[in-house]
Simulated scan of single mutants.
Amino acid sequence: MLAENFELIESIMLYGGLFILFVLMSFAVHDVLSKNNVPLIGRVVTYGVLGLGAIGFLAKGIIEWFWLSTGV
């Protein structure tokens, strides 16, 4: 059974790992920003960049899923 679903398990673990890394990165960024008293605009820009990176990975996964489902 493991050999049959190896690619599926690998894909789930990859995206799960990336999700955990983004969560840990956001905790680290939040800690640094709160300890250094960064102004609101700096926090918005920092969280925006981190969010856009996460949205980019999400978009890549959706595009990849769409292409594989249509046979491209």
Rank of each mutant, 00 (worst) to 15 (best):
M1C: 01
M1L: 08
M1Q: 02
A3Y: 02
A3C: 04
E4V: 14
E4I: 14
E4A: 08
F6I: 12
E7C: 03
L8W: 07
L8A: 11
I9S: 07
E10Q: 08
E10P: 00
S11P: 00
I12E: 08
I12W: 03
I12F: 06
I12R: 05
I12T: 10
M13D: 06
Y15C: 00
G16K: 02
G16C: 04
G16S: 02
L18A: 03
L18T: 07
F19V: 08
F19H: 04
F19K: 01
I20N: 01
I20G: 00
L21S: 07
F22I: 03
F22W: 07
F22R: 01
F22V: 01
V23F: 11
V23S: 02
L24C: 08
L24I: 09
M25R: 09
M25E: 12
S26G: 00
S26V: 12
F27N: 05
F27Y: 11
F27S: 01
A28E: 03
V29F: 04
H30G: 09
H30E: 13
D31I: 08
V32M: 10
V32I: 15
V32D: 09
L33N: 04
S34N: 12
N36Q: 06
N37Q: 09
N37G: 03
N37W: 02
N37D: 15
V38D: 00
V38A: 08
P39T: 01
I41V: 10
G42M: 03
G42C: 06
G42T: 05
R43F: 02
R43E: 15
R43D: 06
V44S: 02
V44E: 07
V45C: 04
V45D: 05
T46N: 02
T46Y: 03
T46H: 00
Y47I: 04
Y47H: 06
Y47L: 02
G48S: 06
V49Q: 05
V49W: 07
L50N: 04
L50T: 10
G51L: 12
G51A: 15
G53A: 13
A54Q: 10
A54W: 15
I55T: 12
I55W: 09
I55L: 15
G56H: 06
G56S: 14
F57Q: 05
F57T: 10
F57P: 00
F57I: 14
L58C: 09
L58V: 13
L58W: 12
L58G: 13
A59F: 08
K60F: 15
K60L: 15
G61L: 10
I63Q: 06
I63N: 07
E64Y: 10
E64W: 13
E64M: 11
E64H: 11
E64G: 01
E64D: 15
W65P: 00
W65D: 10
F66R: 07
F66D: 11
W67I: 13
W67V: 14
W67S: 10
L68W: 12
L68K: 13
S69E: 13
T70E: 09
G71W: 06
V72W: 14
V72T: 11
V72H: 11
